[in-house]
Amino acid sequence: MRVGLAQMDLVWENKEENIKKAEQMIIDAVKKQIDYLLFPEMSLTGFSMNVNVIGEKKDKSETLEVFSEFGKRYNVFIGIGYVEKRKEKAYNRYAIINPNGEVLIDYAKIHPFSYGEEGIYYTGGSKIEKADIKGVQTVPFICYDLRFPEVFQIASKDSCFITIAANWPKQRREHWITLLKARAIENQCYIAGVNRVGIGNGLEYSGDSMIISPYGEILSKNIEGEGIISADIDVTFALSYRNDFCLKKDRKEQLYLQLFHRPV
């Protein structure tokens, strides 16, 4: 499967302009024979806390309707981020849409970024979601989730491909790069991190979108500017590597649980 990452300069809280940009990127991706194209977190708005303005009802989501149509029109899998507006706190969501326009999964970000006040306006999800894309078991996470390795260990038990859609600021870019590589190495899986570029609400974003092999090698990377990168995901290679170097069999999860609950 060929995966593409759409590194965008998101226009702040302007869905119409971002939809136009995204459609052109989808067209470009199809020309490059990309099977699955991923967009950054909160793909049409940037990392906004203005839930009342950008939020959408899940059963009447403009974002899902538009990109379901794009999936059908261009015969491509799409990963897209949006905000679900609720009576209480909102959900920061990431959906995977297939070429029939069907929403395969609609993941809610487990870890709101409390340092950036996301926890004031958003609540965390409680499920790891997965989907089969052209024979590749895929799990999506969102931005701050990257800092919590436990969920990656759970996801990688039956998945060799994990994605992270982000709005990750330039000032912490070394964390982004290092953590992406670490998650690939410790889980022996492909990792794809798609980040935005440009300025959003006064913050600068460096991009650094990349696809990393189970060895921790960067297969493709976009350092700055808008554009699409791509790489092929080979499940057979990942599984062969896991069989040769059986890292997971040496994990002691029951002991970890005991240690976690034991007073220090």
Rank of each mutant, 00 (worst) to 15 (best):
F113C: 10
R86W: 03
R242N: 09
T45S: 12
G135S: 01
Y241P: 02
I162D: 00
A6S: 15
L10E: 05
E217A: 10
S230N: 12
T45P: 05
A29N: 08
R173Q: 02
G116C: 06
Q137L: 01
G46T: 10
F77S: 01
K15H: 09
S230C: 09
Y107H: 14
E16L: 08
K85I: 15
S48H: 03
Q171P: 00
A6Y: 03
V264W: 05
N14D: 15
D28T: 02
L255H: 09
A184R: 03
E174W: 06
C160H: 09
F39G: 01
R73K: 15
E102K: 08
G207Y: 01
G119T: 00
V30K: 14
V103P: 02
Y74D: 03
E62D: 10
R73E: 08
Y94P: 08
A90N: 04
K57M: 13
S114Y: 13
G79M: 08
I34L: 10
G116E: 07
F260N: 14
G101D: 09
K127Y: 14
G193F: 07
V66K: 12
Y256V: 11
L203K: 07
Y205H: 04
N52V: 04
G135C: 06
G198P: 06
R251M: 15
D145W: 07
F47R: 03
G202V: 08
H175K: 13
Y94C: 12
L219Q: 13
Q171R: 05
A6I: 11
F245R: 08
A182C: 11
G200Y: 03
G46P: 05
F141D: 01
D145T: 09
E118L: 08
S126E: 08
Y122M: 08
S126H: 04
E224P: 02
N92T: 02
Q254G: 10
I185G: 00
E204L: 11
V3H: 05
A231F: 05
Q254H: 12
Y121I: 05
P99L: 09
S230Y: 11
Q254P: 01
F67L: 12
R173A: 07
N14S: 14
R183H: 03
Y215F: 13
R242M: 10
S61N: 14
R93Y: 02
G46F: 02
K249R: 13
I177W: 08
N201E: 13
I162S: 04
F245V: 12
K60R: 15
F152E: 04
G101P: 06
D59H: 11
N222A: 11
I128D: 07
K181H: 06
S43T: 09
Y144S: 04
E62Q: 05
N100A: 13
E224F: 09
A95R: 05
I133K: 07
V151G: 01
I212Q: 06
R262Q: 08
K248Y: 04
I185K: 12
P40G: 10
V83K: 01
F161D: 06
T123W: 01
L38G: 00
D234N: 14
